[in-house]
Design a protein around this nucleic acid. Structure first.
Lengths: 255, 255
DNA sequence: CAATTAATATTGGTCAACCAATTTATGGTA
DNA sequence: TACCATAAATTGGTTGACCAATATTAATTG
């Protein structure tokens, strides 16, 4: 009357073993594809303008469904690396708007921002760009900034606002800061604000002549590697805009 | 013997009319969906943790195929705004540690932005956020910053890194700056960098205790409305990171 | 032979059906 | 009544077929 049963003995779990086991990371097919395409580009096997094989061929070659290939291509397009041409193919993009700028724009779009916040942020970014430019501008940078300065003078002397030349001067300083992230931020912030301030015609008649003189002072400080002076000159240059936007803010607050 | 044919008279094209015609922009269904979801979030109708309706319902509601809905959700997930839980649904991500996680590193990697530029830009943004916070923080802000400070202390005393508490402290200062643009930019910048510096374990054993003390000093300056002191304390706090990234930059330069 | 038109092939975009994984509902047992 | 196991429903993920648009090739016309 003995029933033979298989008894499984319960042993204590040796937790120590867990320490030697590492988390495994399953990489998505699309991420693997992205890596391979990135490598082809950075190794020079793919250049801007080159066309990639069709999705169906990539799908076959990689041994995954077309969905995964599409995911990868879509992501690389978001990063600005590829450009998808419907019914024609996918090509390697030239370097236009970068992913960082796209990202910044999108995050900024999430909220409604008041004008004053933009202006205040621009002022502090440009102030530092001028400081860094005074520190880091090489001969090439200085030539570019001076050319932009001269172009702006020519426009002002001809009685025009010189919107593009004004913009160029500021953008060349951003470049001379030799900080690519700061440059990306200013690429977003500066153009809209220069255009806006010209539309609003914030300043009186002598403004563009004065703006040119302020540009000149900024440039002199940068040329002389006067970091503090450059920052202060830029801040002074943008002070009207800051004042205007503060008044605008207060006016809306009292409404 | 006369064959009557319809003769269409060729008139010269009036090119002047072209000037009055504007380019129309066909918005992709996915972009429209993204906008609507964004608006729900920024208007407060959707909050972190909230679950969206299933793809099929959204598809039906928006009157488009599921592919378009998936495209939109995928993009919003890429931005860290949404989080897709397979077989469970899609939720609104919290704008804490999970937000934008790993995104900056991907973007920087792909577009050859150097790490030092990124760190340098962060330092100047956070420095100014601290200054503005010292100027503008109200009682509510101070309570929030102090709570974050205490939470970080508790973690450090327990021997932990306190990643989320560290992050929260910085984010609360950004909020107290009362500049929405600056706040948005710091939402991009801060999460990745705190995580990265913790991973690299830049600092020695006493670092987290020292970090807490530096937080305390920053908070004191803000509480006492000491604008200059707050900026300097924040700069000092981030100095290790700046030094590290400069060394990293020089090391790569000499490679 | 060159230019134009028509037909075919290719390519990215979209769709509905199916799959895999999780959640919810239901029924049975202690 | 609480807990567990099973079944059903739901949900995001994947696939192959089809669609829309472009590119290429072939046929026709002057």
């Amino acid at each position: 009357m003995v029933t033979q049963t298989l008894v499984i003995q319960k042993l204590p779990v040796n937790m120590e073993i867990l320490k030697n086991l590492e988390e495994i990371k399953i990489e998505k097919p699309s991420d693997i594809i992205i890596k391979q395409i990135k490598n082809l580009i950075s190794s020079g096997q793919l250049n801007p303008g080159d066309r990639l094989p069709p999705e169906r061929q990539l799908s076959e070659k990689f041994g995954v469904g077309r969905s995964h290939v599409r995911d990868a291509l879509r992501k690389l397009e978001f990063y600005g690396i590829l450009k998808t041409l419907p019914q024609s193919g996918t090509v390697v993009a030239g370097l236009g708007v970068t992913a960082l700028e796209g990202l910044i724009n999108d995050v900024l779009d999430l909220n409604d921002h008041d004008f004053y916040s933009f202006v205040e942020t621009r002022v502090l970014l440009e102030m530092h760009a001028a400081e860094l430019a005074a520190e880091r501008a090489d001969v090439d940078d200085l030539i570019k900034i001076e050319n932009a300065l001269n172009a702006f003078e020519k426009e002002v002397d001809a009685g025009k606002q010189g919107v593009e030349e004004d913009l160029l001067f500021h953008l060349k300083i951003a470049e001379a800061s030799k900080n690519s992230v700061l440059n990306s931020l200013l690429l977003i912030v500066i153009p809209d604000m220069i255009k806006l301030s010209k539309n609003l015609d914030i300043c009186g008649d002598g403004r563009y002549k004065r703006a040119f003189e302020e540009h000149l002072e900024i440039f002199d400080c940068i040329k002389n590697h006067d970091k503090k002076g450059a920052g202060n000159a830029m801040k002074a240059h943008l002070n009207d805009l800051l004042t205007f936007s503060l008044e605008k803010k207060n006016k809306e607050k009292n409404k």
